[in-house]
Write a protein that binds this DNA or RNA. Structure first.
Length: 430
RNA sequence: GCCCAGGUAGUGUAGUGGCCUAUCAUGAUUGCCUGUCACGCAAUCGACUCGGAUUCGAAUUCCGACCUGGGCGCCA
């Protein structure tokens, strides 16, 4: 019976493991093989005088990164990684690996991201890359559990749509029989429609597509969005949910992924504390005006340079709240006392924006008015506007970028590190 | 879309007109080595993105193409 390498201990007695040949060190009369699976690495030691002919033949023939099955006695050895080693009675090559390798799995020599992504299957064998995706999986599990425990209904909305949701961002056109269609940039309109359906609390984790020709370390043309929409709640309510979710997710990773965090060198993994500070948009602008050279004024978007200096000032996660209505989408609810600002917010990590959300406009006529103000045609949104005439409850929601969450959580330098097969301007394969 | 910087063995690099039959590391092949853990030692193998131009001479200068990284705008 095969057991995971991470579970092999000096107390195991005998063990059978399967995995990849990570490294070979042949000292002459004694040879060391490091065998790796997704749970860890074990040293296999072959004393050549004592080993069987079959074991010697296989050990001589095998190449690095070949798949092998090894079985034998487990011995406690202080000098070996994990304090144990395997002395094989069986050393079977399940599949040979070609040579040379497209990149160095052991990482004695680094590889460019481009080279790594071209051979992602091999790149992902590297323990630190495996760790990123194991942590991403754990984080997603925590997020699903969080919503399930709070009574959210998990929904799936179409990714093939007829029109833009908000205007502005570029869409990917696709051929849809004899009609014009696009890949969806956001589940925004659909999750709002489910408020009219009385679902009250919905969430969706799914792909979003943006055809922007951006060339940065924090943008993808295909990203994963974690979206919620909740009825009978205001923007403060959904901000509470968001900060609780962030803390819960960090805590889950902290409690369940110590091996992976160690592989990544995250020795000081800190769980953020809620509540996160609420910074008024107007105060954020004031900070930026003091600290950066390029001119920025009330009513401007907060650019990368401003984002960085404000982030440095805040030191941790924070919200920017009460944005000018003019620079937010039409579905953000303006304040009654001052319609020039609205109940919209962004969740920020010191490095970048993670999420944005708002209390939504739920009154049909106000919504039409706001759509017009943005220079958009309400008629092309009829499928969306219709529910607002048939009992749409007050509601609020947000969308959180999954890759950015993982990127900032683990201190990754490029968002592509948080995606198995990233899609950007230049990359469509693999 | 705009602005920078690049493209040299499988991988990562050095090389700014002749000293390049191209540096170093890693890797692969072969040999030696019984406690390695970036094992060590020796030998061998393996590269200037493509096309054009300048020049006695181009990896190096110029033009074009293709490809890549980064910054900005915009956003998640």
């Amino acid at each position: 019976m095969r057991i995971p390498i991470g579970s092999v201990t000096p107390a195991s007695g005998t063990a059978e493991v399967v995995g990849w040949v990570h490294e070979v060190r042949d000292l002459g009369g004694l040879a060391f093989f490091l065998i790796r699976d997704r749970t860890g690495i074990i040293q296999v030691t072959i004393p050549k005088k004592k080993a069987s002919e079959a074991v010697l033949a296989a050990a001589k023939a095998v190449s690095r990164e070949s798949v092998v099955r090894v079985a034998g006695a487990v011995k406690a050895i202080d000098k070996a990684p994990g304090g144990r080693e395997l002395v094989p009675e069986l050393f079977e090559i399940l599949n040979m690996c070609e040579s040379p390798l497209p990149l160095d799995v052991v990482e004695k020599v680094p590889a460019d991201l481009d080279t790594r992504l071209d051979a992602r299957f091999l790149d992902a064998r590297r323990p630190r890359v495996t760790a990123v995706f194991q942590i991403r999986s754990a984080a997603m599990h925590a997020i699903n559990t969080f919503f399930f425990n709070r009574g959210f209904i998990n929904i799936n909305t179409p990714k093939i749509v007829a029109a833009a949701t908000e205007g502005g961002t570029e869409l990917f056109p696709i051929a849809y029989f004899d009609k014009e269609a696009f890949l969806n940039q956001s589940p925004q309109l659909y999750k709002q429609m489910m408020m009219a359906a009385g679902f009250e609390k919905v969430y969706e984790i799914g792909p979003i597509f943006r055809a922007e020709e951006h060339n940065t370390t924090k943008h993808l043309n295909e990203a994963t969005s974690i979206d919620i929409e909740v009825s009978f709640i205001d923007h403060h309510g959904v901000m509470h949910i968001l900060e609780d979710l962030i803390v819960h997710t960090y805590q889950h990773v902290h409690d369940n992924c110590s091996y992976q965090l160690a592989n990544l060198g995250c020795t000081d993994f800190a769980v953020p504390k809620a509540p996160f500070p609420r910074l008024l948009y107007s105060d954020a602008i004031a900070i930026a005006q003091k600290k950066i050279e390029e001119p920025i004024k009330y009513g401007d978007d907060i650019g990368s340079a401003a984002e960085r200096v404000i982030g440095a000032e805040m030191g941790g996660h924070y919200f920017i709240v009460d944005w000018p209505t003019e620079i937010r989408p039409y579905y953000a609810m303006p304040y009654e006392h001052d319609p020039s600002i609205c109940k919209a917010f962004d969740l920020m990590h010191p490095r970048m924006e993670l999420a944005s959300g708002a209390e939504r406009v739920h009154q049909h006529d106000l919504l039409v008015q706001q759509i017009r103000k943005k220079g958009l045609n309400p008629e092309s949104f009829e499928f969306y506007l219709r529910p607002f005439r048939f009992g749409m409850p007050p509601h609020a929601g947000w969308g959180l970028g999954a890759e950015r969450l993982i990127m900032t959580m683990l201190g990754l330098s490029n968002v592509r590190e948080a995606v198995l097969f990233p899609r950007d301007m230049h990359r469509l394969v693999p």
